[in-house]
Amino acid sequence: MSQRPLIVLLEIAMIAGIALILNNVIAIKLWPQGGSISLVMVPIVILAFRRGWGAGVLAGLIVGLLDLMIAPYIVHPAQVVLDYPLAFAALGMAGVVKLKEAPLKDQLGLIAMAVTFAGALRLAAHFTSGVIWFGQYAPEGFSPVLYSLAYNASYIVPDILLSILVMVVLVTKAPQLVTRPQ
């Protein structure tokens, strides 16, 4: 039996564990209803670049389910799906952008694009949940749509920027961590 599937599964498990730690232990908690600035995106994006979007989505799904078990904020079953497994699984979609054997400058642009794309998908999941279930927290006279966008962007945009910064450092200093193993 080939060891390749086992190695990929081990990478997924390790990445999910690292991402969970980064999301829950090493994080700046901002809001009482959830949301924090962390490096949760970085390990999932690294895996997505190394093994493809499928492995990245699976790792994100696992992180979302584990986060649901550790620190849940539940108001509705559909909200749970949007805010936990779907939002974190979306981070694995960074793997649809392929890092080519290209100059470093081009790779950095692709990384920024992939992290932004994955972060925007995560934002869409949290935004949808916020409009439907958390609009009640909007200040008087404030649109629930704008409130949800502002609330969720307040931690996801810094997450995206911080993740891009860390990924740029990693691909510059340790590209073997980000590139697909042979």
Rank of each mutant, 00 (worst) to 15 (best):
I7K: 15
V8D: 14
L9Q: 13
L10E: 02
M14S: 13
A16I: 06
A19T: 11
L20N: 11
L20Q: 13
I21K: 03
I21Y: 09
L22R: 07
N24L: 14
V25F: 14
I26A: 15
A27C: 09
I28N: 03
K29M: 02
K29L: 01
P32L: 06
P32T: 11
Q33E: 13
G34V: 05
S36M: 03
I37M: 09
S38A: 15
V40D: 06
V40F: 02
V42S: 10
V42I: 14
P43H: 09
P43R: 09
I44M: 12
V45W: 03
I46E: 05
L47A: 12
A48Q: 10
F49A: 09
F49N: 10
R51S: 13
R51A: 12
R51Q: 14
G52T: 12
G54S: 10
G54C: 00
A55V: 08
G56M: 06
G56D: 07
V57S: 02
L58I: 14
L58A: 14
L61R: 00
L61Q: 01
V63G: 00
V63S: 01
L68F: 15
I70G: 00
A71F: 02
P72R: 07
Y73G: 04
I74H: 01
V75A: 09
V75R: 03
V75T: 14
P77T: 08
A78S: 12
Q79E: 15
V81C: 02
L82G: 03
L82A: 15
L82H: 05
L82I: 04
L82S: 04
Y84K: 10
L86M: 14
A87P: 04
F88Y: 15
A89C: 06
A94R: 05
A94G: 11
A94S: 15
G95Q: 07
G95Y: 06
G95V: 06
K98D: 00
L99K: 09
L99T: 08
K100R: 15
K100G: 12
L104H: 14
K105H: 11
G109I: 13
L110N: 14
I111R: 10
T116I: 11
T116A: 15
G119T: 11
A120Y: 02
A120E: 01
L121P: 05
L121I: 07
L121G: 05
R122G: 03
R122L: 04
A124E: 02
A125Y: 01
A125V: 02
A125F: 13
A125W: 01
H126R: 04
F127V: 04
F127I: 04
T128M: 14
S129A: 15
S129I: 07
G130C: 05
G130P: 05
V131M: 11
V131E: 08
I132P: 06
